[in-house]
Design a protein around this nucleic acid. Structure first.
Lengths: 231, 231
DNA sequence: AGTTGACAGATAATGTACGATCTGGTGTCT
DNA sequence: AGACACCAGATCGTACATTATCTGTCAACT
């Protein structure tokens, strides 16, 4: 789980590894699902030879971001509604577990920090700043999960979050959904403050489910609105 | 999730891909956790050049079987007790979910098949045939999970099973543990027969937990008995 | 004398270049 | 119009060059 923010993919930038940049291209939606990834083209764009690109693609395949057909090259993993449902279902198991643990560990300072993030999110309410919205949401959840002892579960959550983020990025967030998210975060912080693990787990499960439903709805809407299928 | 059984890794065998053979080496315990994986050596052994090996290693890294340190090469993922606990905890969430679904879908024929596998497992009871034991256990669980609609969850389960299998392979299975496994399988089939999803989920959760505890105990025992640390 | 530090060779990972092989499409001949 | 040969483009495998890390030796210093 890394934070490296490689803002902008200049052709000559060698600081960030090919893997990081390729991954960002996918996660930040610069390449769309089902789009082809040609090694020589990427190598040229990244200013390296083909081998590093091939290896990065293999790693991304292992992580599930990329599909590789023998002799036919690589594509960004096609992400349909079923795929989103699969991932959301897994998250509906993992996040409640992580949350339960956090309820037992949260300090007064943690709760203050969560409150602060909620407030900052609400301040954005009227703007249309997707990126900031998503960023605060990420910080909110990371604050809860990052210290968990089960590093593998946290990493799985993070990967899933990035995948869902890549899908959801081009979509607009309806005001209703934005309000729901805020209300759920508030409810979550309340439950944590009361050390009510059951309630917190219930809220987060709903939260994940709602987010999944929202993404699927947006996918269908975009499918219908003509613009190339989001397969 | 593939079944290819590449029995024996002859130097010239080109049918199976380098990836498959390397993965089998890890899963079947031919290389131990924390052991170094040198690309040129592997390439020589597999009768290919280094590039396919490098790519296979990157994919295995993405899947979590291998650790790669920059400029310092690859190792089989060190698997300590914490790691086992992490994975088992995740499985304690996923397997009950998969099982619940199966309870609703199981046909009379499925139940007969499960019964048959239990019987064959019991027939082995007095022998010491680890491989067959593990094989029947695998078939038992695959029969329940393989048809599940959430392919990602099933794949995750399969990967985790392989990892745990790789760790547990060198260990001896105590007669007590063997009996517990059998009893749990029987209890599970009973619950399925009665369409009692809650009970089935409870049993499978215990089953997974017990298996994890057994592995950790064996790891500690082997640590203590001197022979190189199982890190 | 024992320990530490630097240097040099060996070893292995990483990057580059090129040829072989496969796929998909185009154009031609029947 | 359909089948087949051919060609362009991309992947995959091999060989080589470069760079980094590890190991052992030797000298200098405490």
């Amino acid at each position: 789980m890394d934070d490296r923010q490689d803002s902008g993919t200049q052709p000559g930038d060698r600081r960030a590894s090919v893997y990081d940049r390729l991954r960002d291209d996918i996660v930040l939606g610069r390449v769309k699902p089902h789009e082809r990834l040609k090694v020589s083209e990427i190598a040229a764009r990244m200013g390296s030879s083909t081998n590093p690109v091939r290896e990065a693609l293999q790693q991304l395949r292992g992580e599930g971001f990329v599909i590789l057909e023998p002799n036919r090259g690589a594509r960004v993993r096609p992400m349909d509604a079923d795929f989103v449902r699969d991932i959301v279902e897994i998250e509906m198991l993992i996040e409640p577990k992580l949350t339960r643990w956090f309820v037992g560990m949260a300090t007064a300072e943690d709760i203050r920090a969560l409150d602060g993030l909620c407030a900052r999110m609400e301040a954005l309410k009227l703007d249309d700043d997707h990126e900031a919205q998503y960023e605060y949401d990420t910080q909110f959840h990371r604050l809860m999960y990052d210290r968990h002892y089960n590093r593998n579960a946290v990493e799985l959550w993070w990967r899933h979050r990035n995948i869902l983020g890549a899908i959801a990025r081009p979509f607009t967030v309806s005001p209703k959904r934005r309000n729901d998210v805020l209300a759920e975060h508030r409810a979550l912080v309340d439950a944590i403050r009361r050390h009510d693990a059951d309630e917190a787990a219930r809220v987060i499960e709903q939260h994940v489910e709602g987010s999944g439903r929202h993404i699927v709805e947006q996918m269908r809407a975009m499918d219908r609105s003509g613009r190339a299928r989001a397969v």
